[in-house]
Every structure is written in C-alpha cells, then in structure tokens.
Design a protein around this nucleic acid. Structure first.
Lengths: 364, 364
DNA sequence: GTGAAAGCGCTAACAT
DNA sequence: ATGTTAGCGCTTTCAC
C-alpha cells in the first residue's frame, strides 16, 4: 500500500446508497422551538460545564425527552474536531491474549465515555490501509496491536494531531510510541525457571518471525541460557506460527520420528502455542508433563489456568499495559503535544503452575 | 436507564478538551487550489461513480497525495446521512463463541468498507445506554448480541431509520428482527444423540436464566427426552452461569458428595460450560468421559475440537448467521423500509466427537 | 446567562 | 463535465 489518497478504499458507493430512509430527524432546533429558547441554549443544555441557568436546562432536557432527541455527535465533531472515538487495530483474535487486550481497552474507554472503532488486520500484514480508513473518521487516537506500520502512516497521524500508540510491539528506528511487556526479560525468567528445575536441553516454539515480540522473548530466553553455560546446540528453534495448530503440528514434525531428541524443556513463546505443544506431546506421543518434558508459556491467558494445562507461564500485566498505553495517548489533554519515541516496558511475572517442577516453593 | 435525552452519559467534558492540537487540517479546498479546480471537483474525484473527467480526477488525486489529504468522513456524513459505521453491541467476550461472532462480523463489514463501533454490555444488563450512545453517532445499523433491549430503544432506532438486528436472541412480543440458531432444535439433536448412545438419566448445565438462548436449548432438550419416555425426574438442572468456572464449580457442588447420583449424560448448554464440567468430572472426581459420563455441548468453538476435550457438540453456523443478520440490516439499500418482526432461525448440526459414544458411524 | 450569526468540511442540486 | 451555491446539525465567538 504505497499509494495514499488515491487508493480505492472499498467505500460503499454513495450513488446506490444516496436515497434516504430518514424522514426528518429531530434537531436541536426542534427542541429549541418546543422549549421556547434559542438553539444555542439547547446546545448548552447538553454541554457539561457551559453557562446556562439550571432551570432553563431542565426545561430543555424535558423538551428533548418528549421529542426523543439525541444530540448528533457527528455534527458536533465537525466543529469541535473531537470525535471521542478511538481506533483499535488488532491482529490475531485467534489468540485469547488479544481478546483480553481488546476487552480491557473496551472497558476502559467505554467507562470514559469514548467509542471504539475496531479493525483487524491479517497477522503480519501492514496496517496502512486500516490507518487510512481511520484517518477519515478523525479519531482522537489510535491503538495498534498488530503487524507492521510504515513510518509514513505514523507521520500522517501525527501531522493531523492524532496520537498513535503501539501495543506490545515497536518499530525500530521509528518515532512511534508504544508500550510492551518486557519480553526479553520474560524470556529470561522462563530460562531461569527451567534451569532451576534442572533442564539442560531446550527448544523454543517461535511465532511470527517478523514480530518483535516473538524475537525478543526468544532472545532473552537464549541469552540467559547461554549465560548459564548452556551450549547453543542445546537450544533448538521451532516455528509455530503463533497458533495452537501451528505449534501442535510443528512439535509433531520435529519429534514424532525421533522422540529421543526431545529436550528437557520446551518454551512456547505464547501460551496458545505452549498448549498446542502440550496436547501434541501428551495425546499423540504419550508423554507426561513435566515428567518427560517441561513446558513453559507466555501471556497467562485464562485457558492456561485450566486443569488440562496448568501451564507455568510469564504473566503479562494487561491492565497496567493498557493504562500506560492510554496515558501515552493522553486523550484528556489533546492540547499537549504528541509524545514521540516513548518505549515503555512493563515487567512480566513468572506464574508457577504444573508444567515445570518447582524447585523450592511450589505455590509461589 | 429509563431517562433518555437527559441522562448524563459519561461524555468527556468538552470544556477541558476544547483546546486543539490540530494546526489546520488540509481540506478539499487546499487540494482544489493546488490542482487548479473547484472544490466540488475534489469531492467528485473521491466519489466513485460521479461524473468527472478521468484526466482531471488523476490530477486531483495527485495533488491530494502531495498534501497527504484524506477526505473527512465526518463531514460527508453530515450531508449524506450515512456514516458507513455499524455498531456491534456484545455481551460476554469471555465466551469464545462470541469472539468468533465478532471476528466474523468484522471480516464481513471490513470487506464492505464499513467501520465497526464496538460496545460491550455486562451480561444480563440492558443495552439501552449503549444504544443511546450509538444513536449519537448516527450509525447505519446496529447488531445486538447481548442482553436485554427495551422496546423503547427499538423504536428510537427505527424512528431514525436505523435498522437493528438481534443476534442469537429475541425479544418476545417485540418487533425487533433477529437471527438465531434453532436452539430448541439443537437441544433436541443433543437429546437424540444421548438417547442413541443409551443414556437414561440426564443433567443440563444452564446459562443465563434470562437468556432465551439457554432457555430454548434446555427446552428442546427436555422436550425430546420426555417424548422418548424419559421421566422428568431423570432430568436434572444445574446453573452454570454461562462460564467455564461457573460450570466447573456447579458440577462439583452437585455431584462431589454424591457421585452415585451422577446421570448417564450431561448437556452443557454451551461448549465453554461443557468444558468446565468435563474438567471438574475428570480432574477432580477422577471420572472417565464418555465411559462414566457422556458430555455434550453447544456452539462448536475451536477449543472444543482440541485434544483434551474432543467435545461432541451442536455446531452453530456462524458465518451463515452473520450473513443473514447483515441481510436483515440491508445496509446497501437504505431506502428500503426496515423490516420488523423477522425471526430467522438457522439449524445447527450435531458434530460427533469423543464425548458421546457414537452408536453407529463414529466419524460422521 | 442568552440569542444571533458565522462557520466546521463536505455533498448535492442547479446552472452552465 | 464542471463550477456555484446552499445547506447538513452543531459549537462558539460576540454582543447584549
């Protein structure tokens, strides 16, 4: 998507949609007429903090009620230049972690009286088209949890005063701000857990090769192992495509024929892949976890807590990350300048469950 | 939420947000000036199917590119009275089935060039406030998968020419249109599966008691069993709150102390509850499925296919249901009248997997 | 505190 | 095919 303005966005043809179904919406003029006041008074009645006599406001609200009047936010946005809409661009809703992220953003934004415009983008695809669509709607801010973003898009947003925040990814060499879990640090935590449990040979199931998230977790994990004296050859890498099925078949492909090459411990770069690996190992290869192989994950999705898995994993503090992301957007202070280049990292936390034998304190 | 116009929606205070971050957006006038044409020519250049010389259009698009111009949809909506936005009001994203529904709606609408405004509503709460918020944004249509809806809201939408469609629920005695799975029929399918497998005593784990979905499935299930001569006393009802955890603990509460009262078969009114029940039964009570108890679910979420579950369930044809819902909205033909009172039912299909011994054809 | 009036950025007749 | 003009429904000076 290198074109910009001239790209043929699939906008519904207004020619075929031009006919109106609406008879005549009731406007603030109608309310004004009924209440016997000016139209601007009606506007004030619906604007918190504007100067209007309480009695008059009551009268107006009363009239509005009678007419089932609802202010037209589209019209007011035209003058205020604020829509109270935030765009959320998501990848992979097949990963429950991102469903949780979505839920949290919706909760927060909804409570603030803001609306959410949701987009999804193919995993790994670029989000330029989505951004362009979002720009037309003059959103107050953009949250991007998916895929790639061209620097051109970043500056188009910023030029228009629309702040944009990356969630759990960053673009090296870009001035886009973002929040992410300390993925490398989390990878290290997992390495330490495995080491403490006595593992000496390892595999990691990696996700999207272009995703910094997967790379960072793998890097932290590997680095920590190397520091501990593990040989590079004792760390195998497997591609799991970030999905349950991908991990499931990748594990089978890697070990079914040669179960003797199985490592002591396998790190699923996210929980959903760790779960796929567990199922492949147990159901298809008849192995026991953690007796035959230890497994670790990353995210702490609700499913990883369930009985068939009881997955030891690195918990991402979603709520905190969401709050930090919203803070970067500073929707409440649009006058403040957009802050570029922020890269806020939030530490993850190891959650011990059943897939790695805990060395000392099982419950911690 | 009985008030209407005067309710204090948590709208961000414009007084504090009035300051502008935007310097001066580039408008169609700027593009017109650069291209040396009238402003309306610019508008036409961006409107598919409008009469403009191809050469001129190119020149305009070129100029737009240079200026990073993007048309302002908010402004155009003001005149066209179409926003190309559809509102999606969701309950429970904790149930993967609704995540799938969300994904499907997003896919479809995005491909049509439409935007999605997403809301969530507490399960069982009324959606009036969400509707009111949505109305302000003049959306082109509303999809409601959650909770209750007052008839007052239905008519407020319809009065404004905004079509609304209920997804997998209906409101008896209302003229709101909707699409749903044939839930009662699905319940019957499950009853038949259990009977065919030789079950003679039963339990159902029910969800939201106010939800028609849960009620209908339970009703169909029960009716079919009674028809087959099963005594009402051989059908137990358990409340599972529509969640994994709810079902998990409900099953434990019901049977842990008296495992001898266990029925031959348990019907989880949705998959997520069936999964909770399975885990409770197997991990906490040491039972084998289907040898000790058979289990059936409803929805066919991706998780139910996974190895630890292999759940026999009733599949809801999500894609088809979504398409039917969008057809009712007929977004492409806004001139056509809103169709009230449609109640489209789509049949479910039994998917045999491992939690009910298949009587004859295991793979079918 | 209140009303009149001038836009916000665009589309849609209406002429030409 | 193209430019001119009049709004769409609201907010916001600006007088009073």
């Amino acid at each position: 998507m290198s074109e910009t303005a001239d790209l043929p966005l699939p906008v519904p043809d207004p020619a075929s949609a031009s006919a109106r179904r609406v008879q005549s919406r009731t406007t603030s003029f109608d309310v004004a007429a009924l209440a016997g006041v000016s139209q601007s008074a009606v506007s004030r009645a619906f604007t918190p903090g504007s100067s209007i006599a309480p009695a008059k406001r009551q009268r107006i609200l009363e009239a509005a009620r009678k007419l089932n009047y609802v202010p037209n936010s589209i019209a007011s946005s035209l003058t205020t230049k604020r829509t109270n809409i935030v765009a959320l661009i998501l990848g992979n809703l097949a990963n429950p972690f991102y469903v949780e992220v979505l839920r949290t953003f919706i909760d927060r934004l909804q409570a603030q009286g803001r609306q959410i415009l949701t987009f999804t983008v193919e995993n790994g695809a670029d989000s330029d088209e989505a951004i362009l669509r979002v720009l037309r709607y003059q959103v107050d801010g953009v949250v991007l949890t998916s895929a790639q973003l061209s620097t051109r898009m970043t500056s188009m947003c910023h030029d228009r005063g629309i702040p944009i925040v990356l969630f759990n990814r960053y673009i090296p060499g870009s001035d886009a701000s973002g929040v992410r879990c300390d993925n490398a640090g989390g990878g290290r935590l997992m390495a330490e857990a495995f080491l403490a449990a006595g593992a000496r040979s390892f595999a990691m199931i990696k996700g999207d090769p272009k995703g910094t998230t997967s790379q960072d977790r793998a890097r932290g994990f590997t680095e920590r192992l190397l520091e501990a004296g593990v040989a590079r050859s004792a760390i195998r890498e497997i591609e799991g495509a970030s999905t349950y099925d991908g991990a499931f078949s990748a594990v089978l492909a890697a070990y079914r024929r040669e179960p003797d090459r199985l490592p002591d411990a396998i790190f699923g770069i996210n929980d959903i892949m760790a779960m796929g690996a567990m199922d492949a190992l147990r159901q298809r290869m008849g192995l026991k976890i953690p007796q035959d192989v230890m497994i670790g994950g990353f995210d702490d999705i609700p499913e990883s807590r369930r009985h068939p898995y009881q997955l030891t994993t690195v918990r991402q503090p979603v709520e905190r990350m969401v709050d930090e992301a919203l803070a970067i957007l500073h929707l409440d202070e649009p006058a403040l300048p957009i802050e570029p280049g922020i890269d806020r990292q939030v530490p993850g936390r190891l959650v011990w469950r059943g897939t790695i034998p805990a060395p000392a304190l099982p419950g911690a």
